[in-house]
Design a protein around this nucleic acid. Structure first.
Lengths: 325, 325
DNA sequence: CATAAATGTGTAATCGGTTACATACCGAGC
DNA sequence: GCTCGGTATGTAACCGATTACACATTTATG
């Protein structure tokens, strides 16, 4: 590895001058600058970020905490984050915490130990973080005192309910995610508010987790109850697909015997047969905007919108019956 | 942030002693050790990994290069890697390169700048890496002089071909991935070897990329040709699902009008209707074993198996016709 | 009991950058 | 000609850890 000293020697200047030239800080004569650039090229010099980071106490890394890399919804967010970060010359450290508090803690300690400059988290809160680096929450945490980019899940829940009512739902099972997730709560509140007002029969059923690896078990439990309902509002697309799989096994026809609506619009929701009707979250956009906000905070900007609320959209496919009108 | 100096002062010893105590190197009296541990706890001291890394020229990070985070096959690998790395107290820096050489280069520079201790790459080779840290290739590169954990794709291709022949295929379209990917080549070679020998009619069709975002376009092009065939061996599950989606649109019934077999066994292949018959790659295992091998190399072990070959398995689902016998 | 070996500890160099500070030179303004 | 501000550059301190080396003390050995 060539170091700044090698460059300095090659360009016949001091390391200070090299550093100034590379960082455009302080005065450097044009002559020196040229010699330095030439030396950098000749020696293929890349500054050692570790050394830089040690002195500066920051880095060109941001951390991204996601709950479940196996759910394709999160990679969508990750891409948005990554694209913006890349534009700014930053790297993103992707941490897959899988709902495991211990794992999350380890990643956060790690972030701190590496002088990470900001954190984006798709998580309700970032516990146990003592440093003072900026944090932006994605998809959740809208009412907390964190900065956040969220989707209006209450509205999303309403949209789902309106949509199924519109398609003739009479007995609706609405899956609520785990109680600990505000996201899930908001969604089901939105749904029930509409359902309640319109007078259709409905029941809330709570599931324990959002993790994809529990989806199969959960879907089976739900199917046991399904004979009393004509429609299910699933807590996300993975669950919706899992329910459809179970229905297929049991000869329950979709949408005739049972209507299904999902949430997220993950790429795979278009591949089911029938293709899944769902509520789209602007995941990529959320990631991208979240990264933007985080960089504003890193730069010390203060006139930023603290909580941005994005709107979901209905994606009309084929798991609801044709409307009769 | 508390530093080693704070701990030293609190424990009334020098920083050297603290360092020795924490790293179990050199001599430290039991009395000092206890006082140091107490101080560490009291001050909640976490060593600054950046400083440590600067001196040691290594770190507790390994890099994982994956080609496409949107394809659920890769998160499976990532989990295997992560689980093993976590056991060993390492972090994994997940880099999503999206088939973009520029992006890959940036990540690799970045890895080098952060003294990463090893690289796992799901990529044909790791170009332009001048350092000398260990590299393990996953899923590809079996014949190169890199260390690798691969799946026997030739055999996988054979299995797919045997399977479809077994189910009565007469005219087979086999999708080949991009020419640049040995994986794709091996698979199609395996398939054609069997097809050739058994005398069934077949055609190879080359696609430009494995990236999921090009899948829709590619599938449409393939469908144009499909009327001449009764079976398609897709280059991976995402493509298989995409083809099934197009078939659904066009009223082509699966498996009666067209049989489909995929490759990978991504979690979502079970959600299609009919559920996708496919060849499973032991992705998680590949990640886990790859991490194991990488750690052996990091530790300087030399008596390791250089190229491990895992075997794929047929996952029997419903996109092939019932066998007539 | 003398000496060698083992144990324990502190000072300072080191890793590769950034930057405060000192210094020197130059041209402008009085 | 002298002073002042702008330009240019180098020396050395610093970031927070590890470790070579020196030195002191204790323990083992013959």
């Amino acid at each position: 590895m060539t170091t700044i000293k090698d460059v300095a020697k090659e360009a016949k200047v001091s390391v200070a001058t090299v550093s100034r030239a590379l960082n455009n800080s302080g005065y450097v004569s044009e002559k020196s600058r040229l010699r330095i650039m030439k030396a950098v090229k000749k020696l293929n010099y890349k500054p050692n970020e570790v050394a830089r980071s040690l002195y500066q106490k920051t880095s060109k890394i941001i951390g991204l905490l996601i709950p479940d890399i196996a759910n394709p919804f999160f990679p969508l967010i990750a891409r948005g984050v990554e694209d913006y970060a890349m534009e700014k010359g930053y790297m993103v450290l992707l941490a897959n915490v899988e709902g495991d508090q211990e794992k999350e803690n380890r990643y956060i300690d790690f972030f701190a130990q590496y002088n990470i400059s900001g954190i984006l988290s798709v998580s309700n809160e970032v516990k146990r973080f003592d440093g003072n680096i900026p944090i932006v929450l994605l998809d959740r945490g809208g009412k907390s005192d964190y900065y956040s980019i969220t989707v209006d899940h209450f509205k999303g829940g309403q949209m789902a309910a309106e949509k199924v009512i519109d398609h003739g739902a009479k007995n609706v099972l609405v899956m609520v995610g785990p109680r600990s997730e505000y996201v899930a709560l908001d969604r089901s509140k939105g749904a029930s508010s509409v359902l309640e007002k319109s007078g259709v029969n409905y029941k809330l059923i709570e599931t324990e987790t959002f993790q994809t690896n529990a989806a199969e078990y959960t879907a089976q439990k739900i199917i046991e109850e399904i004979s009393n309902f004509d429609t299910v509002i699933a807590s996300n697309d993975v669950y919706a697909l899992e329910i459809m799989k179970e229905c297929l096994k049991q000869g329950i026809s979709i949408p005739n015997d049972l209507q299904v609506i999902g949430y997220d619009n993950i790429p795979f929701s278009q591949y089911s047969n029938p293709a899944l009707t769902t509520i789209e979250q602007p995941a990529y956009q959320m990631g991208y905007k979240g990264a933007q906000l985080l960089f504003d905070l890193i730069k010390g900007k203060t006139d930023v919108e603290k909580n941005t609320l994005l709107v979901p959209t209905v994606i009309d496919r084929n798991t609801l019956k044709e409307r009769s009108d």
